[in-house]
Each structure stands twice: as structure tokens, then as C-alpha cells.
Design a protein around this nucleic acid. Structure first.
Lengths: 148, 148
DNA sequence: CATCATTTGAAGACGACTTTCGTTTTCATC
DNA sequence: GATGAAAACGAAAGTCGTCTTCAAATGATG
């Protein structure tokens, strides 16, 4: 009745072709954004971070906050997750490893979770299914003990 | 330096307060959308589904596609995931259980994955951390054997 | 110091999704 | 079959997060 065979395939192919290089220079602005990210505990949105910076007297632009956060994610110094609403949240990553977090839906606090078991399981899955370059994102949320 | 303590908390609190009841009546439009969803294999976006329907001669509106898909998700007859870009993708769910899928990044094909082990692990995590009402989303993607 | 490349930020574009609101359809009840 | 209230419909407009554009500012390099 409806031809849908090709549509699904296209979904993962399209990318805005953003060829602009990122963060070649270490600048005061970027440092400022990174410091703010480190200072904030739990995941924050770009907008919230920007609002906080402005409220604290900075004159950084929202654009720059987006670019700085993007650069941090690209270089592995920040993690990002999607809030159910679709918004992206950022969090500074001290270490280098691939991590997952458990986020409190009430207070926003987050704590890293030991996902070794899941990682193993995913590796086994890649073997079993014959899928190559298997990536996964795992998002956990609940109501933490203090908020419950 | 920056006051961020409260911002994160707000992120999960805001909801548009959409109290409108969903899908009380079986209508031709909803059936049409559901049929299209069933017919398409792999995950599709609301927009792609709408485009396909229109291309096939239907005069269904995008609004209705969104509402119909929302209703299907709410009643458990469809699964939804977020594409990295932020778009929501839908897929018809034959059974009733909570499922996860492994999606091919090239062709969009998806296959259900047995996540019993992960489910158990998540339950254990809820116990260990003291978090209540623990929810999780797991998104798996790779390059399937046929595309590799 | 002159030149050239990169970064910045304001404004506006963009895209997915939702709301609004007047019209149409459904369906339980006559 | 006819009636009518509740629910669904869809076009248009609105919302909201994010990205792009471009002129101006800033920093590096000759």
C-alpha cells in the first residue's frame, strides 16, 4: 500500500555536512565554558549552562557555548545524553573511559554506573549477530534515595 | 563561580501538561497510519511515514500522524527510539513485552535483541543504588552483515 | 607592524514537534 | 435510520533547541 522500503535507510545517512574545524585554539571562552561544566554537577543543557554563565556575569554567547560543548564531546572530555524531551545534556568527563550514568529524574544528580557486564554482553551480541562496529547508548534514570 | 545547582533539577521537571485523552475511537485515519507503520520494516520517523502516506495518495495530515503514532506508543503497540540527530523513530510492536532493537546504521533494518540479562542487571542496580522507579533506554546500532 | 586565519556572538534560519481552532467523523442512544 | 455530544481531523501558526551566517574582534605568524 505504501512504499516505505527506502525511507528507513535514508534516516541514518543524512548528516548536515559540518566541515568546520573545531577548537583549534585554546581560548579564554572555551576555558570558561569548560570550567562551568566541570563546576556543575550532574548533566546540564547547553542553554542552562549559558544562562548560568550569563547570570554569573559572563558575556559568552549561546553559540560559543554550543561550539565549546561540541568540541569537548568530540575530544572526549564530555559526555552527552538525550533527555526524553529531545534536549541534549552535557557532563564533564574526568577519565577517558566509556561511561554510563544513572540520573535522578527529580534532582538531576547523576552517578556513574559500573556497566562492565553490559559492555561484555554488547561485545557478545556483536559476535552473535554479525553486526560490525556495534555502538550502544544506555540511559538510566530513577528517583534517588534523597528525593524519594 | 557559577550557580548551576538548581538548573539541572528543573530539566526533568518540566512537562507541557498535555492532558488530552488519546485514541478513544478507532478511526480510518489511525488505522491507515498503523497499517503503514506495520508495513514499513525498520524504524521510521513520523515525517517519513507521513511523506510515504501522502506519496501513496493519502490525504492524512502530519498532525494526525504524530497523534496516531503517539497513541500507538502510549498503548504499547509501537516502540520509539531517538535517532542521534534528535528525531524520534517509530516501529510497530507485535508483542506486548518491553523490547530493545539492534538497528543497522546503513540500511535501517532492525532486529529485536534478547535483553533479559540487561533487564536483570537493571533490576539489581535499582536495588543496589536505592533508586526508585528505575527506567532505562538502550539503543544499539551497527552495520549488519548484509551491508558490511 | 602587517597580514591572514580563527574565533566570537547576534540574528536569523532550520527542523521536529505541538497547539490551536474551526470542521468533520464516530458511535451510543433514540 | 436520525441525533448530538465527544472525539478526531488538518492547516496554519507557534515553540523550542540547535545550527548557520557573517561582520567584527582576536590571536598567530611573517
Amino acid at each position: 500500500m505504501v512504499d516505505l522500503e527506502n525511507t528507513a535507510a535514508e534516516l541514518f545517512a543524512r548528516r548536515p555536512a559540518d566541515r568546520r574545524p573545531v577548537a583549534r585554539r585554546g581560548t579564554a571562552r572555551r576555558a570558561e565554558v569548560q570550567r562551568a561544566l566541570i563546576h556543575s554537577d550532574g548533566f546540564v543543557s547547553a542553554q542552562a549552562l549559558h544562562a548560568a554563565l550569563v547570570a554569573a556575569g559572563s558575556r559568552v554567547g549561546l553559540t560559543t557555548v554550543y561550539r565549546a560543548l561540541g568540541a569537548l564531546v568530540e575530544t572526549g572530555r564530555a559526555d552527552t545524553v538525550r533527555e526524553p524531551h529531545g534536549e541534549r545534556l552535557y557532563r564533564h568527563r574526568p577519565g577517558e573511559e566509556h561511561r554510563h550514568y544513572l540520573i535522578c529524574r527529580t534532582c538531576g544528580r547523576s552517578e556513574p554506573v559500573d556497566t562492565a557486564l553490559v559492555e561484555d554482553w554488547a561485545r557478545g551480541l556483536a559476535r552473535d549477530t554479525g553486526y560490525a562496529d556495534l555502538q550502544h547508548t544506555l540511559e538510566l534514570s530513577g528517583i534517588c534515595g534523597r528525593c524519594d
